[in-house]
Design a protein around this nucleic acid. Structure first.
Length: 274
DNA sequence: AGGGAAACCCGAACGC
DNA sequence: TGCGTTCGGGTTTCCC
């Protein structure tokens, strides 16, 4: 269904057999919308969102970066799950659940529920999705992103490697966990200056990013804390959340540092700063 | 331009 | 046992 390759936990929502039924939405007509936590609606204002989305039909379900992209008859619905967001497609007869923030009721009596414990998730209804998506960097799994191009992107920035990789306008889709795992796989220190990576290191990094994302997708994403259902990638992290445990490669205790205000996990021996 | 801090949130985990 | 505090995930915004 999705044209683009899939990235991390979003992939779970788009895959056949993932069990949440998003793939079955195209063709359904939205009859009404309930907003239970107004701040979930990023734009337009909740009352206009509710008025405008009613009557529109779902044309497709896809993804760009960490956004779910749902083209409707006239507008496009964008959903970002942020930290704790989750989606359910179910019968309208099911009970509303704790932490449900926004509900779409379909004419066929199904419902799409946007559940989000921590209230960070957002939804947009827009005639021009490029307003939100236009600034995103390339897709890491896009074959068109060559080593040469990636290296060229890196060298135009004098920035710490990890914050750059997590910058969605640089590359779309990497979060804290996958970045730590990818840097470990590539044996690169998160504080390295992006601009000084060699072509060889850039190649290693791109390979590592793709391999980490692919494994995350294969495992249906990572369930951090108690937040997500499904995926089991969290049981296969090499460094993330393993402070003090032995590096799988060399046995050195995994170190935790803070980079760009984010908890960062490295093997100090495998990922030397220079 | 890049980096740091704060804000938005909740519930788990921790300290006493 | 129970309470208060800390933490952290993604992103935006503001400030230096």
């Amino acid at each position: 269904m999705p044209e683009l390759p899939e990235v991390e936990t979003i992939a779970r929502f788009l895959r056949e057999g993932a069990g949440n039924g998003l793939a079955g939405l195209p063709g359904s007509r939205i009859e009404s919308c309930q907003v239970l936590w107004p701040r979930t609606i990023a734009s337009p204002a909740p009352d206009e969102f509710i008025r405008r989305i009613a009557g529109q039909r779902v044309e497709a379900v896809s993804r760009r970066g960490k956004f779910l992209v749902i083209p409707l008859s006239t507008d496009t619905l964008l959903i970002h799950l942020r930290m704790s967001g989750d989606l359910r497609v179910e019968s309208g007869a099911e009970p509303i659940r704790k932490h449900d923030r926004m509900i779409l009721n379909f004419a066929d009596n199904r419902r799409l529920a946007f559940n989000d414990t921590r209230k960070f998730g957002r939804a947009w209804l827009t005639a021009d999705p490029q307003e939100e998506l236009g600034n995103l960097g390339p897709e890491p799994l896009d074959p068109g992103l060559t080593t040469q191009r990636f290296h060229a992107m890196l060298t135009t920035h004098g920035r710490q490697l990890k914050p750059l990789l997590m910058d969605q306008t640089f590359l779309a889709g990497l979060g804290n966990i996958y970045t730590d795992e990818a840097l470990y796989l590539a044996r690169l220190h998160p504080l390295r200056q992006a601009g000084q990576l060699t072509m060889k290191e850039a190649a290693r990094l791109l390979d590592a990013i793709r391999s980490v994302l692919t494994e995350g997708i294969r495992r249906n994403g990572a369930s951090i804390d108690w937040v997500y259902r499904g995926g089991d990638f969290q049981n296969h992290f090499k460094v993330y959340g393993r402070t003090g445990e032995a590096c799988p490669e060399c046995g050195t205790p995994i170190q935790r540092l803070v980079v760009g205000q984010r908890g960062t996990h490295i093997c100090p021996k495998c990922q030397p700063i220079r």
